[in-house]
Amino acid sequence: MAYDKFTILQSTAVPLPIENVDTDQIIPARFLKATKREGFGDNLFRDWRYNPDNTPKADFVLNNSTYTGKILVGGKNFGSGSSREHAAWAVYDYGFRAVVSSFFADIFKGNCLNIGVLPVQVSPEFLEKIFAAVFADPNTQLEINLPEQTITLLATGEKESFDINSYKKDNMQNGFDDIDYLQNIKGEIQEFAAERPF
């Protein structure tokens, strides 16, 4: 599925300073019954966000209108657990375009890159700085610059660079996905497959 191009994102951020946020929290299994990729944002963090009677939990950050923006900032080991791409879809569908953490689980990170959400891995120290800045002033603007591979706290100019491989970077900047690439080398794949023993 093609997605919007990603170059420079300036936005406020939503802080979630919890470690080991697993994909069962991001989108609980009972919401995986859809056969289309629609509406997952409504159930993002469902059980942290709503009581069993569907009333919002006032103390959860997504229910606090002080914090808004297109950047979600999470604690270490974000996205562990299940491979469900639905977790990344929920993040995207809710309106986030980037997730910042000091450490991501592998599959979640890959899924994000495949659907146009940018995972930005920063040092634990920089993550603390972001949390502190956002809690002190919810209007804190962050800039994520993909071409430069930097993330900046605009008020102070403090910045850090992040890693992304050049192939994925290119894809994100152009809104391409892997299927476009794979379609173009189909002949090569077929030759390879013919040699496989099983």
């Binding site: 491979s83 469900r84 791409e85 890959g110 659907i115 192939y167 996905d177 892997d178 299927i179 794979l182």
Partner: peptide, 20 residues
């Protein structure tokens, strides 16, 4: 190993995925 749905689509149509 486990993969996401975008990758399921890749395997169906090309029998490959892109992995470091």
């Amino acid at each position: 190993f486990g993969i996401g749905t975008s990758e399921v689509e890749m395997v169906l149509t090309s029998q490959c995925i892109m992995q470091p």
